[in-house]
């Protein structure tokens, strides 16, 4: 209990004292996970919609692949990215290994199947006749997709939340492709692992608490967007 209390105190001190190192870690964490989720959204949502709304040969196989991808172990994602970005690998000339870009790529690999899988499940719940109704009202294919996204707005945002939760909390892939280099590729999760290894438990707790606060804040924002049609007391307060 003493350890947790120390951790909470440390986290406040670290944040409010303006500790440069911790601020850099927080910013890099947000940058890497934020970019990864945005890229995964741009790929995963249209893919989930296209697969969920259309029937085609091989659909079951692709859905099975996505479902498998949803449970992809982060270390496996890290390994795949490493294989391609390693100096002697096909994309080695890009010199991306141990950079934030490599971390983003690895996290995209983790988040995209989660977002497309949840989106796919969400649109599968929509009455398929709504698509016909949208077409009959004069919608083109893009408009139909947009209308369907709005119909599946709540579960789609849940997909984004799940994707963000998946990447901000993962450590295996970013450790493998980022290398946890101080000041360059160190994020909250890898820094926590480092602190535990060094026996700096109050500092590790502080980083975990910051991580939880960030995850909670991101999810609060998404929840507020998700439930805009049914304002809660907190939304009314903010208005």
């Amino acid at each position: 209990m003493q350890l947790i209390w120390e951790g909470i105190k440390q986290s406040f001190i670290l944040i409010f004292s303006g500790n440069r190192e911790v601020l850099d870690i927080i910013l890099l964490t947000l940058k890497v996970s934020g970019f990864a989720v945005i890229i995964s959204m741009l790929m995963g949502i249209p893919a989930g919609l296209a697969i969920g709304l259309n029937n085609f040969r091989g659909k079951k196989f692709i859905v099975s692949l996505i479902n498998t991808g949803m449970g992809l172990p982060p270390v496996a994602a890290g390994l795949f990215v490493s294989v391609f970005l390693w100096r002697s690998s096909p994309l080695g000339f890009l010199h991306l290994m141990y950079t934030p870009t490599a971390m983003i790529v690895a996290q995209v690999l983790i988040a995209t199947p989660i977002i497309s899988g949840v989106t796919l499940a969400a649109v599968a719940q929509i009455n398929p006749k709504l698509k016909l109704q949208a077409l009959s009202l004069g919608a083109n294919r893009t408009q139909v997709l947009w209308i369907m996204v709005k119909e599946a707005k709540l579960p789609t945002l849940a997909a984004v939340m799940a994707g963000f939760g998946g990447v901000i909390s993962e450590v295996g892939a970013v450790m493998m492709v980022g290398g946890n280099i101080k000041g360059q590729t160190r994020v909250l999760t890898t820094a926590t692992v480092q602190m535990v290894r060094m026996g700096e438990m109050p500092m590790a707790f502080a980083l975990v608490i910051i991580l939880l606060v960030l995850a909670f804040a991101a999810n609060i924002v998404l929840t507020l967007i998700q439930q805009r049609d049914n304002p809660t007391w907190i939304q009314k307060f903010w208005r």
């Binding site: 009455n127 006749k129 109704q133 949208a134 009959s136 004069g138 709005k150 119909e151 707005k153």
Partner: peptide
Amino acid sequence: AAVRKRISVVFQEPLLFN
């Protein structure tokens, strides 16, 4: 699509959007 825009349909289910 052009012809569809000159027609409108009401199905058995109301099929309203959210």
